[in-house]
Design a protein around this nucleic acid. Sequence first.
DNA 1: TTGACAAGTTCCAAAATAGAACTTTACTGT
DNA 2: ACAGTAAAGTTCTATTTTGGAACTTGTCAA
Lengths: 165, 165
Amino acid sequence: MRWDELDQQPCSLARTLSVVGDRWTLVILRDCFLGVRRFDDFEARLGITRHVLADRLRKLVDAGVLEKHPYQERPLREEYRLTDKGLDLYPVILSLVHWGDRYMADAQGPPVRHRHRHCGQHMRGILICSACGEELHPRDVAVEESPAWAGQGLLPARSRRRNPS
Amino acid sequence: MRWDELDQQPCSLARTLSVVGDRWTLVILRDCFLGVRRFDDFEARLGITRHVLADRLRKLVDAGVLEKHPYQERPLREEYRLTDKGLDLYPVILSLVHWGDRYMADAQGPPVRHRHRHCGQHMRGILICSACGEELHPRDVAVEESPAWAGQGLLPARSRRRNPS
DNA sequence: TTGACAAGTTCCAAAATAGAACTTTACTGT
DNA sequence: ACAGTAAAGTTCTATTTTGGAACTTGTCAA
């Protein structure tokens, strides 16, 4: 399967990745959340090729994650801003950052901290169940086919085929 | 900058992406969380080239996200299992899935549901502040350089350079 | 008139990917 | 003994994508 066919799969994760799963795209979005908006600023901060940057920004705009917003005319100059759809990617970004803080930090520790303006504390994000409020762990979550998709073999048969252990 | 230099940046997100930021890697990990463990099963479910699959699995093992576990000898056959480090990527996976559920679903709706075994309800993951327990929104989180990294210009100067608005 | 600025586009060489075939070790049925 | 199957890769080539640098366009300022 080619990468660009991934969004046709009946899988929300695959479809999300068809938008943000590219090598550079999430780094671009990180900078968007930090307030970077202009082409040359992205290029200078990321060390990304202008060629690829232009392509990724265009795709993010097409996907509705960013929108172009003119900040001067003659010559027309536009900056890139997160839409609401883009802002909703925040849990993804923050989860990636916290994993890196935990597992990829060097001797100096994580490079940035996050402070919650509401309570004033340094913090990290915790994922909880929307129904009961408990912290989520992978083993506690059962995945079920939705009725509309039932019987299509979206989920693997857990039993090993020839070597049941 | 080349992609493989990304892990040298002082940025937890960039470093995380140097492990999982590849196009296929997060789809492989999705299947790991669904219980897929064997080479041929990954290949059949993902439609990924064997070549690339072998390479990505090797890199995930090198990174400590997966580990090889023999399930038979003669001939030696090994399966891939998530380590604790890998299991800790669950918030990333679930956040990606929920964004896709919301923005990328088609008329049939999201293909799978998640049920929390503790409370028995269908649910989604919500990101809250570890300090005060409130739900997190991007505008409420301030990013600060850690003392050890201060003054290195990790964060952009928010003021626009020539066109302050 | 020259230079700077901003946001790209164009060009080419180098690297990565898709797709298919091949390899290795061992078991199974005839 | 022999063919077929199985699992987990490796090898091969053609196509695509990327990295790096230079070029373009429209406008203003010195």
